[in-house]
Nucleic acid binder design. Structure first.
Lengths: 197, 197
DNA sequence: GAAGCGCTTTACACTCTGTAAACTAAGCTA
DNA sequence: TAGCTTAGTTTACAGAGTGTAAAGCGCTTC
């Protein structure tokens, strides 16, 4: 039962942490810096989040809610056609990645040191893989997978292709437009995994 | 002019740091832990490497020497045929990635906090991109690029596909065999970027 | 034998995470 | 109105980590 005031504080802290860690990374920002940027004491952070890892966990869950990822994935799952499912999945990735990528990159980097980050990463990527597997199974049922390509292989390939890192390489580092990135995903998956009509 | 003894110490330190950071990541291992694992004092590390980032830089350069990456890339560059160049490049990636990946992942993670790591990462990935661009330019000259695919786009795509992260996703996380990974790279690049014969 | 080198010992300054205890101010409830 | 709970503050402490400094010790080399 959190009051209105505590939720405001929570949001201010999460915003401050997001802004600071965007520039300097997870280990590059101390709890004191976050606290002072949020206009709050360091102890308040420990009272609210328990630890720095707890703060990271709160950042992740909030960013996923804001991006609306569950809703978009649900929409993809309810498509009837395999191809439509794939396209809805790629639309979801392209729509959500710009918002999710900054924190996704934090978690990926911190996962080597922090068990909480490792767990967050494994969970997020695992559910993505499961979603992609569902799409590929449907495509296989529709007879659209290229000969010699199993559902498992197709899921692995498409999952790796739609990872935040590919987004980083093409959109962030190389400056691709998100629409071009979206088209590239469909083109690559089609050419590599699907039966040409 | 370093003596035999100092080089032995250097190697012992680098081995110890590699082993420890493989498990616990860059920020998860202190200089004291590295020193004691190498049977050496913490001060020796600062005398030899200047800082923790200096130690990381030494780890990177040694691992590249050991893997023989420059030699393999040179071999790829001296191929006459565009397709042979591409295959040599992919051979090099598949041969070298298993050794290079552990430290590559350290650098990638630490790059957000540490400017030295950021510089190492930018340099390594930049030279890979340049190499890939050379291959794609040759393929374009041979008339082998698919219609509508520019050299720049092809280089970006192939570069992102051959990144350490794709290796991590498929070989480390999903347990693919390296040979399968190698074949997947060629198949994907062929299907996505090359003109079908 | 003197100089230089590799390394050790000890010590210090600073930063960061995490814990603890006591206090204040506000709101809710009996 | 009195009392309890909640959010947040202040201050303090323990432990670990990075980086710097200075003095000393043993071995090789000229």
């Amino acid at each position: 039962m959190s009051t209105i005031k505590s939720e405001q504080t929570r949001d201010r802290v999460l915003d401050a942490a997001n802004a600071l860690m965007l520039d300097r990374g997870y280990h590059g920002v101390g709890m004191a810096a976050v606290a002072s940027a949020a206009g709050v004491t360091r102890q308040t952070l420990y009272d609210q989040f328990g630890s720095k890892a707890g703060l990271l966990r709160a950042m992740v869950t909030r960013s996923e809610e804001v991006a609306g990822l569950p809703r978009l994935l649900e929409r993809a799952r309810t498509e009837t056609d395999g191809l439509a499912m794939l396209r809805a999945m790629l639309d979801a990735v392209a729509a959500v990645e710009p918002q999710l990528y900054p924190i996704s990159r934090l978690v990926h980097a911190a996962r080597l040191e922090d068990p909480v980050a490792a767990e967050l990463w494994a969970w997020r990527m695992g559910s993505r893989l499961a979603g992609m597997r569902g799409v590929m199974a449907r495509l296989a049922a529709d007879g659209l997978l290229a000969p010699g390509v199993s559902v498992g292989e197709a899921a692995d390939v498409a999952w790796a292709l739609t990872s935040p890192q590919q987004y980083e390489f093409l959109v962030i580092t190389q400056g691709w437009d998100v629409q071009l990135y979206r088209a590239h995903l469909e083109r690559t998956i089609t050419a590599r995994l699907l039966r040409v009509a």
